[in-house]
Design a protein around this nucleic acid. Structure first.
Length: 546
RNA sequence: GCGCCCGUAGCUCAGUGGAUAGAGCGCUGGACUGCGGAUCCAGAGGACGCAGGUUCAAAUCCUGCCGGGCGUACCA
């Protein structure tokens, strides 16, 4: 039994014996200070008012009842808390269970196979992916993994905005590069895409097509739009491959229009009385529901806005059978998010169907100081350049190591220069070291061990017991990271675990220690397992050798 | 102006209302005749932006300020 459950069950029994009751989850904390025990509960504070007793008194009474429980070496009431010191045997039992679970350790079936969609990146096909998209890609991919681990059936989806003015601008920018390649003095249109990545494409088209499109006509627009989007998608696919992200479904804006979903969603909103006309445009009456402004759904020229299409898209997600949708988006989309959430509420979709993982931007600190990035101005760092410089593991890890709503300063020079003083390597090195011990142990015949038969009683060092306690925390951590959309908790956990392992390893020898050796090898096996599981959730490799 | 996010060590950042606030980097000084030194040990370094409030208990919740970011388009 896991430690938290063990404590909760024991307390429940004590409550029953005392004729007390507590509805709800009994809180179990892991105290920072060792003198406060291995585990503690603040339950007495919660129970005291209804019992008409002081917390200290409640804690005392509970401690009396729990004192003789064989799992605990001590149960101490202190300052209204109830602190538990575990018997080493209780921890040994936990380690055995972990090893028995193997790679399934920490997995859960709470998702019950329900459908979850994670929509992320969804970058417009107007250029290659940048370091900004990398944060999205890493966050979305890790969130998807976390939910898969919790028993959800996850669809990773990319929404492809292949319509609209930005695409026209891109097409015309590409056309200008094409004309330039033919020796004409055709400037990139105002507000167009200045990036150098269009130059070689323009040259290719010039070679292939010659002087076929001398002026910007409707026909040229069609041809260059199709060509530009296809080329940009090739780039994006290449970038995604570089960081190991794969999408299950690509949805194109054009498809939503073709299937009539946009007008259908608009009609549904109209039926709810949430739409009004002003200046020839159709507006969503958002202020009526407490938002700060109304938004246009259909422009006066009859075309739907981005927001309108987004609402239709999300209504379709609901119809597709998803129980939960997580959208990973940047902070510049907050206003948009509120409007969509509001529209879904008006349409009667359940609260909580759509959750946003909102993240702040990545600022890049390079040789020229902090730079604001812009795809349109051609000022950005390509994702592939970053991956080439620091590797996929570091790139992914760095993008999720901070909580999404925090700004993330990516120091490019530091990432390259100090790659040896890097948390990713610190964690991976712990895994490698254990693998190395196993290799050595295999030579001496000490490894592998018959896990179920090993006597773990030699595991008595405080560091060893602390390590098992940390391993025990892994499933809760994964659950919390998924629930709170907080992948950084995984990084924090792994660094903590590696931070317990390295000092232990430096102090305690594993091989050639008689009966202690198989016990310690079991502990190392548990650590290695959990490190691999955690790194796996992040999409970071767990190397046997470095 | 209004809305949302952030403000914690020199830097980058953790910290599910709990007990004496943490990590990495950087800095100072140590540790290799045994399993990988990409490691370990020790030290210096803090008004948790400011002021009120709620609570047995606040870095955490509420209110108001101050600072930074992002929005506030018939762009996407």
């Amino acid at each position: 039994m896991r430690l938290e459950a063990l404590v909760q069950a024991s307390i429940q029994q004590a409550l029953a014996e005392l004729g007390w009751s507590f509805s709800g989850l009994i809180p179990v904390d892991r105290p920072r200070r060792p003198e406060h025990g291995d585990l503690s509960t603040r339950l007495p504070f919660m129970l005291a008012p209804s019992l008409g007793k002081a917390p200290q008194e409640v804690a005392h009474a509970l401690a009396q009842r729990l004192r003789h429980n064989l799992a605990f070496a001590a149960v101490r009431p202190e300052a209204g808390f109830l602190n538990f010191v575990l018997q080493p045997q209780a921890l040994h039992a936990v380690l055995k269970e972990i090893l028995q679970d193997g790679l399934a350790y920490g997995r859960s079936s709470v998702g019950e196979g329900r459908l979850l969609q994670v929509e992320f990146v969804s970058s417009n096909p107007t250029g290659p992916l940048t370091i900004g998209h990398l944060r999205q890609a890493a966050l979305g991919d890790v969130l998807a993994s976390l939910y898969e681990d919790q028993g959800w059936k996850v669809v990773r989806e990319y929404y492809l905005n292949d319509e609209g003015r930005q695409i026209d601008l891109l097409a015309q920018s590409l056309w200008a590069r094409y004309r330039q390649a033919l020796g004409h003095d055709e400037p990139v249109p105002p507000g167009g895409y200045q990036g150098a990545y269009l130059v070689p494409l323009g040259e290719e088209l010039a070679k292939a097509w010659g002087d076929r499109y001398p002026v910007w006509t409707e026909q040229a627009r069609q041809v260059f739009r199709t060509e530009a989007v296809a080329r940009m998608m090739d780039m994006i696919h290449e970038d995604l491959q570089a960081i190991g992200v794969r999408f299950d479904v690509w949805t194109r804006e054009g498809d939503l229009h073709r299937r009539g979903l946009v007008s259908e969603a608009l009609q549904a909103l109209r039926d709810k009385g949430a739409v009004y006309e002003k200046d020839g445009a159709q507006w969503l009456h958002s202020t009526a529901e407490g938002l700060s402004r109304d938004v246009v759904l259909v422009r006066s020229d009859g075309t739907p806005t981005y927001t309108m299409v987004d609402i239709a898209y999300h209504l379709d997600k609901w119809r597709r059978g998803f129980t939960l949708v997580i959208d990973v988006q940047g902070a510049d989309h907050v206003d948009e998010q509120r409007q969509v959430l509001l529209a879904l509420k008006i349409l009667g979709l359940p609260h909580g169907f759509l959750r946003y993982c909102l993240h702040q931007f990545v600022t890049l600190k390079g040789e020229e100081g902090v730079q604001r990035m812009s795809t349109r101005a051609g000022r950005f760092l390509r994702l592939t350049d970053l991956v080439d410089a620091v590797g996929r593991d570091v790139a992914r890890y760095f993008m999720v190591m901070r909580k999404p709503e925090s700004h993330l300063v990516f120091d490019f020079e530091l990432a390259k220069d100090t790659s040896m003083e890097n948390p990713v390597y610190y964690v991976q090195y712990a895994h490698t070291r254990i693998a190395s011990v196993f290799r050595e142990g295999a030579k001496s015949g000490e490894w592998p061990v018959d896990t179920p038969q090993v006597d773990l009683s030699p595991l008595t060092h405080p560091e060893e017991l602390a390590l098992v306690k940390e391993l025990d925390r892994f499933p809760d951590m994964v659950r919390l990271a998924a629930q709170e959309l907080a992948p950084h908790l995984v990084c924090e956990y792994l660094e903590g675990l590696a931070g317990l392992f390295h000092p232990y390893y430096a102090r305690v020898r594993v091989l050639g220690q008689g009966p202690a050796t198989p016990a310690r090898l079991c502990l190392l096996a548990g650590i290695k397992l959990v490190l691999a599981r955690g790194l796996g959730l992040l999409g970071v490799s767990a190397p046997e050798e470095m």
